[in-house]
Design a protein around this nucleic acid. Structure first.
Lengths: 149, 149
DNA sequence: TTAGATGCAAAGACTTTGCGCACTT
DNA sequence: AAGTGCGCAAAGTCTTTGCATCTAA
């Protein structure tokens, strides 16, 4: 069973718990992330935030996302060469990105359990618990590749 | 057993086989890649090439790498947020990148066989055959984390 | 009150592109 | 000889940083 993400209030409390301040921009970013289902790029987050608070600048978004990552509330990963995507910790555990159509689906972390054990045993390497990003070809693109071949 | 990479001559023949030309810059890039054991960033490749042919510019390196990717001689992947790394097709199959110390080790593709079957069966997703990049924590950093804790 | 947070704009890192000349074929 | 490929430099994308101002606590 997948762990549920924290609520906006819980996250804001976490922020207050450190010596950081809860600002309008932070409130809005957190709200956007909590309402998002799945990953968003910084640009998408910025757009969503600005639709609510147009004065919030991209640099502030990046700074807030960085702070939320320090608090382990958010993780980000790089899918291919595009912009990084961010999402709440615990809400999602793996990304499958299609190199052909660039689509990304999110999957449960349980798919990596065996691999994790293997890598741990063989290399002493601990897979990231929050985001495992994989690239390949999605079902649809494999299909169309076959068809067009 | 891991498939062996093509030799420099084979690669240059492949280039000639298309309607592309074999230039000094291409010869040098191919030479560098063949002599490299493992992945290199574009910058590392550029440095290595320029140590042999100082006049070769970074943009040329990128153009050549792109051409080699089109020919399926080279693949590149993005490990974390750093620059992309390139290597010959078939020489390597997986990267484990430590998020803490940024070190990367290369592992055999056989580690992904089970995962591949699982993803194929569950999502119809075909893992990339040439490069699977994973991030996490290496043995050394797990160790020092424990020690300093 | 006061130190952290923001907005704006400039800088940075990595990569791509435009253009005219050089070099491969 | 013909046209691809190159070097140089400028532009593009994504992200970070500097600084004066504003604001949460």
């Amino acid at each position: 069973m997948v762990e549920t993400s924290a609520s906006a209030d819980e996250i804001l409390s976490t922020i207050r718990g450190t010596n950081h301040r809860v600002t309008l921009a932070k409130r809005t970013v957190v709200e956007v992330l909590v309402n998002a289902n799945g990953h968003m790029t910084a640009e998408e987050i910025t757009s969503a935030v600005q639709s609510l608070r147009p004065e919030v600048s991209p640099s502030t978004i990046y700074r807030i996302l960085e702070e939320l990552e320090d608090l382990d509330v958010v993780v980000h990963s790089h899918l291919g060469q595009a912009a990084a995507v961010y999402h709440l910790t615990g809400s999602v555990h793996g990304h499958l990105t299609c190199e052909e159509c660039k689509s990304t689906v999110e999957i449960s972390g349980t798919h990596f359990d065996a691999l994790n054990r293997d890598l741990q045993k063989t290399y002493g390497f601990q897979l990231d618990r929050h985001h495992v990003a994989l690239s390949g070809t999605c079902a649809a693109c494999q299909q169309s590749r076959r068809t067009s071949a």
